[in-house]
Design a protein around this nucleic acid. Sequence first.
RNA 1: CGGGAUGUAGCGCAGCCUGGUUAGCGCGUUUGACUGGGGGUCAAAAGGUCGGAGGUUCAAAUCCUCUCAUCCCGACCA
Length: 501
Amino acid sequence: MAKQPKTAITPTRAEDYPQWYQQVIREADLAEISPVRGCMVIKPWGWAIWENMQQALDKRFKETGHVNAYFPLFIPLSFLEAEAEHVEGFAKECAVVTHHRLEPGPDGGLVPAGPLEEPLIIRPTSETIIGFMYAKWVQSYRDLPIKINQWANVVRWEMRTRMFLRTTEFLWQEGHTCHATEEEALEETRLMLDVYAEFAENVMAMPVIKGEKTADERFPGAVSTLTIEAMMQDKKALQSGTSHFLGQNFAKAQKIIYQDKQGLQQHAWTTSWGASTRLIGALIMTHSDDDGLVLPPKLAPQQIVILPIIKGDETRDAVMQYCEELEADLKNQQYADSNIRVFIDKRDLRGGEKKWYHVKRGVPLRIEVGPRDMENGQVFVGRRDTGKSEGIDRAEFVANAGDMLNDIHDGLFQRALALRQSNTKTIETYEEFEEYFTSTDEGQGGFAMCHFAEDNPEVLKMIAKHKVSIRCIPLEDKSGPGTCIFTGEASRCRAVFGKSY
RNA sequence: CGGGAUGUAGCGCAGCCUGGUUAGCGCGUUUGACUGGGGGUCAAAAGGUCGGAGGUUCAAAUCCUCUCAUCCCGACCA
């Protein structure tokens, strides 16, 4: 046996977390950097995960009364200028299209030619162009609400990119709704946050904190921004989905006006909400271990992989047949309202190699079937989440496969929740706060629940020193009022403080 | 965009300081044999314009300049 590292991924999380993250992506074959700066190629395994996410989210959007549509990739420059805060937020990271053709250059090669009269920007988000269309579509209160979602790519020219977490181009969905009343828009904002949270927990097995962003973290142009925040295994926070109440800001800027029942002209109320391929990054950093990716069963492109163990040609056909029958039986079993996704890996690889291939890709259950199991009417089952494996009676396993996947989902969720809980601390003084976020070894902070003075630049300055930001004010916080640990002012509630991506 | 690091075979690296035969190693790949409940053994083979462009030199992976890209830290953000 050749010398192998103790873990499939080197370095380990403990040794070098950012490097570990890169390696997991490579070993699981999720994505690769591309020749285009800051942009990545999402490979079939990564894409299949995204498709499963899309499917689960899309189903929830439709169930809550939304429809899909598509708006252009290009946005006239003048559109972005409409909403002042929106401009400020996005202007510095826009890709701009200024020409519409190429011509042979004087020194060979091609040079841009045919300047555009008005430059186009590539959407960093679509509030402005969708708002423009909504202004045309909305005349009467009878036209409202409009609840549209689009699956799209967007471009934000960020300074620093990281695979899945922040790339120049990324994929997402953006929902844009338009309502007659403030209450209805607020309700929508809140509803979609709940959809994201439910998806995160029930599909991704990722516990999240629902909360509201403080003014400085708000979406440019929003009245309020709601967020789901998750804790990664390095104890940093990752914003995993956002839902914005835009008030009448965009409606006023873009003249989305309707005539109400009294015949009066009214500005509409709008919302927008989005979740992106960043969720794949969240998935990786929530569950994966030093042997690679760990997939929650509902998102796993293959939930069970069957590995035939062939020992010589005599038993080959018999084992294959046994595996195929097993596959057929398993495919008839249900998990999470659909048939279990099963794959037989028939490649002519050695058993060990094949096993590690699927371990690194995060397949929840591995079934190894050799002549011995066949004789005993058993299957040898390995669980990705716990690393444990055991022989199980074939019929029993088939009958319980769905339950087992369910158990894996719950286990992953509980493990992630336990990590967050054991790294969340209620903090009462600034000294304690400093110590919490300064200590270096295992305990380099996590989430801190603190009373704070809202919209106070002093507070922001004091926490920025420790590279900490206010992640959100939890919606379900019941701590009640207290005293700001930074300024001593009165505070109406606690917020989640933490380092973040 | 500031600070730091790195770019040599698919992956991980050595060589560079102190320029000088055909640029090495491990893993992987291909072929064959032996194997086969765990990323195996033996043998053979393929694979590199040393990130790119200039320069210094008789001679550059090695020295200099520029440039591109990646990674880390920061500022900014899904």
